[in-house]
Write a protein that binds this DNA or RNA. Sequence first.
DNA 1: TATTGTTATACTCTATAACTATA
DNA 2: TATAGTTATAGAGTATAACAATA
Lengths: 148, 148
Amino acid sequence: MTMVDGERPPQQLAQYSGFLLNWVAARSRLRFATALAEIDLHPREFAALNIVAAKPGLTQHELAAAAEIDASTLVATLDALEQHGLAERRVMPQDRRKRAIHLTPAGEAALRRGRALAKRLGDELFGTLSADERRQFELLLRKLAGVG
Amino acid sequence: MTMVDGERPPQQLAQYSGFLLNWVAARSRLRFATALAEIDLHPREFAALNIVAAKPGLTQHELAAAAEIDASTLVATLDALEQHGLAERRVMPQDRRKRAIHLTPAGEAALRRGRALAKRLGDELFGTLSADERRQFELLLRKLAGVG
DNA sequence: TATTGTTATACTCTATAACTATA
DNA sequence: TATAGTTATAGAGTATAACAATA
């Protein structure tokens, strides 16, 4: 039994908005991870692909900071991406301690597949809301996150 | 560096509503856990207190099911609650394998403190929203969770 | 000396399976 | 045999600290 297997949140805890927020988030995270696994991608790898695509040539420290994870945590993620031929570490000639991270064409294709999946899962997540309600929810979510 | 230390979510990932949902949820969870720790309570303990208060005398299996956690996971939570004098296991005479879980007066007091904290943290979480927006967000959250 | 990336390690969380005591 | 609770254990996830290479 996993914590997010339930179809409905525990009744006595659902009164807490913070709990409900975490319950809905955990369920959506699990579903997304499950869907990503079908295309051999881990959520961390998908996150890294997104950031590297936006800023090719980042160093590992810069990538870790952009992803808000520890640099040591990033190592295994990049190992996996390289093993699957989705990204490359390139030693920088001007400072041979640093490695610039780039996507391969296969990495860009994987990113596109992941994005299509994210769109599909987003539609599923918000399936019970009207288009208006979804826009409203996403707007408020951005306010809560201090974004845009 | 923790995953949720950032003041703002990673820019390249904030476009995904699912990511944003998880980011906001993780931040609120961390803050709540930190606040609860100041009154010597763990989020799992607070969850158990809530359910037992609503349904005194539940068996451990029933409590685990109500909390949507595994029965084995519950053991340590109840151990901690008992050690702090907040809850009791009472062997049931009609079936000595079962233990009925009850709160102590101290447990009810701890629950009240936790609830006050949850209210305060909820107000902080939604501090950037108007009262109307907060109601709207909570309504949509319940729709997403399939509640009420 | 300081920094980059890496490795080793430890800690938290939680599930699975084996165990015990009762039924 | 089956069930309630417990214990042992294993896996995922992620941070901290020590390390090697380079500056």
